[in-house]
């Protein structure tokens, strides 16, 4: 088992290298720094000097992969690839266009992101699984049908609608909580409660329906028939036997997103003015701040891979077949 985990972790390294090379290609090869400078400075009236200055400010005035002018090891290190891409492996993300350290920005913005994303995730998981269990318990009845119909309806509604509708109803019409903004500490409650609520409601449709499918698939298996033949009640069959087995497919989808919670949600944060990583990303996209977008891409994949490894670990917890072999 340990060997299995070590192998999974070692496998993560080439993946990260792949991500790094991909982002490098995307940001520096598809369009050269000259192109980017020309676009940011305005295409019509741009002088070569202005482009050079723009590149120099951002450290893009070096060769791509190999610096023949430099000495020794800096032939490889004094290049765009080394300084902009490879350096991300040590979480050195450089500076954004407004001159701030991206790493520091990430560190301070993680908190607000988590304050929204973590409760949304936990409450949501609990709500969706409960709802799905309820539908499974009443499978084939009108209640189940109505539940599924509700799910389909909810998942057909755009996520933007939940946010706009929620803000309109709760903040603007009822004046229960502020429309947007954020404060740290105890004050934060009134700012985070609406985004969390909306986040949970927005996921009900697809998640509950997915969990229901998983439960139904499990319930059709032979061991469930055995459990019933023992004389167990339907509730107990569902909660001990089915739930335990259904944990395995559920974990596959759930654990992997846990690390990504740090990244926050783009939409929610930008609508509610939460100073988290999600709104940071959106602002960077709108300002076409490539360094920040590049950093977030890399950070996102690191977190995703951490999630994959966590998933593997969680298997060993819930599935004895993985744990003991």
């Amino acid at each position: 088992m340990i060997a299995y985990l070590i192998r999974r972790i070692l496998y993560a390294l080439p993946i990260l290298i792949g991500v790094n090379l991909l982002t490098f290609a995307l940001f520096f090869v598809v369009n050269t720094p000259d192109d980017m400078a020309r676009m940011q400075l305005g295409i019509k009236r741009v002088t070569p000097e202005a482009i050079e200055k723009w590149k120099q400010q951002r450290g893009y005035d070096k060769p791509m992969l190999f610096n023949s002018a430099a000495e020794g090891a800096s032939k490889a290190t004094d290049t765009i690839f080394w300084q902009k891409s490879a350096s991300m492996f040590v979480f050195d993300f450089g500076y954004s266009d407004d001159g701030r350290s991206i790493s520091r920005e990430i560190a301070t913005r993680m908190g607000p992101s988590l304050a929204i994303a973590l409760p949304t995730f936990i409450i949501g998981l609990f709500a969706y699984v409960s709802f799905a269990l309820l539908m499974t318990l009443f499978r084939g009845t009108a209640l189940d049908m109505a539940g599924v119909a509700l799910c389909v309806l909810l998942m057909s509604i755009s996520g933007l609608f939940y946010i706009i509708g929620g803000q309109f109803l709760v903040s603007k019409l009822w004046h229960l909580v502020p429309i947007s903004g954020y404060a740290s500490g105890a004050d934060s409650f009134k700012f985070v409660v609406l985004p969390i609520l909306i986040g949970v409601i927005g996921g009900v449709g697809s998640s509950s329906r997915w969990y229901r499918t998983i439960f139904l698939e499990e319930i059709g298996k032979d061991y469930v028939r055995t459990a019933r033949a023992k004389g167990l009640s339907e509730l107990r069959v569902l909660f001990t036997h089915v739930l335990k087995n259904a944990m395995i497919p559920i974990l596959t989808g759930v654990v992997v997103v846990i690390p990504l919670l740090f990244m926050g949600s783009l939409l929610t944060e930008s609508f509610f003015g939460i100073p988290g990583l999600g709104s940071y990303t959106i602002d960077a996209i709108n300002a076409q701040d490539f360094s920040v977008v590049r950093a977030m891409v890399f950070l996102g994949s690191v977190l995703y891979i951490v999630g994959l490894i966590l998933t593997d670990i969680s298997y060993t917890v819930v599935d004895p077949r993985v744990r003991l072999q």
Binding site: T226, A229, P320
Partner: peptide, 25 residues
């Protein structure tokens, strides 16, 4: 009826590999 199942009347099935819950001892 639940008191009868597994009590007075018990049943074993064709596929022992599928009929036991894989994640319980």
């Amino acid at each position: 009826m639940r008191a009868v199942r597994g009590g007075t009347m018990a049943m074993i099935f064709q596929e022992p590999g599928l009929s036991l819950n894989p994640v319980m001892t």
